[in-house]
Design a protein around this nucleic acid. Structure first.
Lengths: 120, 120
DNA sequence: CTAACATGCAATCATGAGCTTGCACATCGA
DNA sequence: TCGATGTGCAAGCTCATGATTGCATGTTAG
């Protein structure tokens, strides 16, 4: 039976891939922007900045951060720039966290087994 | 039929709860520490710092960040402080990302429905 | 007891993140 | 055409973060 390639969580490639994404999500303002775009209606920067306690330029910077990690995509439409969500990186992040939890659970299973049959 | 309480992703409480966690994970070093602790074997600070390109004190700071958001728990054992993983916050973060994706998918469904029956 | 080890605490430093203000430029609407 | 609107760019400011060094303290092993 072919063994599926082990998903190595500690691999440097994994870390370099996921850390920036988590960093991008690690800000209340940006997290709010993400959740605001969940309804699939693209919004302009000004619209997104509306109601926020900070400047439009600050929002622009936050959107750039989100765009850099692919969570958000912006496209010019006339004089305004419409941003829409791209959930794919979020799904990848979710899967990553899932694998960590799974590894945690598997470790428990191995531990139990070892306790039952210590000589193995 | 009773409607389950809507999970409001944009709620300020949600953001304040999850943003610090994502921020804590948004660092390669800290992410590495988390994955190293996945095998359920508690490790001391020096052990965790071993092989890392930075100082032990720096590792201590990173562990404090992780401990603050509950991903990691440290307990003194003799002269060394053993850290172990606590996957619960990670699971919550995973669920949060899951809800975002779900909301994205639901929005598509609603959109389709609206196209089919625009008068509703 | 004593030397090696593990950690904690404090001072310090560099860098980057997050915001702001000010201005220039393009675009839409009346 | 002209004013209002939506953006972009750049300079600058403040403060938190990440990291270091140096030293003090507690603990273990021999």
């Amino acid at each position: 039976m072919l063994r599926k390639r082990r998903s190595d969580l500690t691999g440097a490639r994994q870390l370099r891939r996921h850390a920036p994404l988590f960093a991008a999500l690690g800000d209340e303002t940006r997290l709010k922007l993400v959740t605001r775009l969940c309804d699939r209606s693209p919004r302009s920067i000004s619209t997104l900045a509306d109601g926020m306690p900070i400047t439009r330029q600050a929002i622009t910077l936050h959107l750039q951060v989100l765009e850099k990690v692919g969570v958000v995509r912006g496209e010019m439409s006339g004089r305004e720039r419409l941003f829409e969500l791209n959930p794919e990186p979020l799904v990848q992040a979710r899967d990553y966290l899932d694998r960590v939890s799974t590894q945690w659970d598997n470790a428990l299973a191995r531990l139990k087994k070892q306790v039952e049959r210590p000589e193995e």
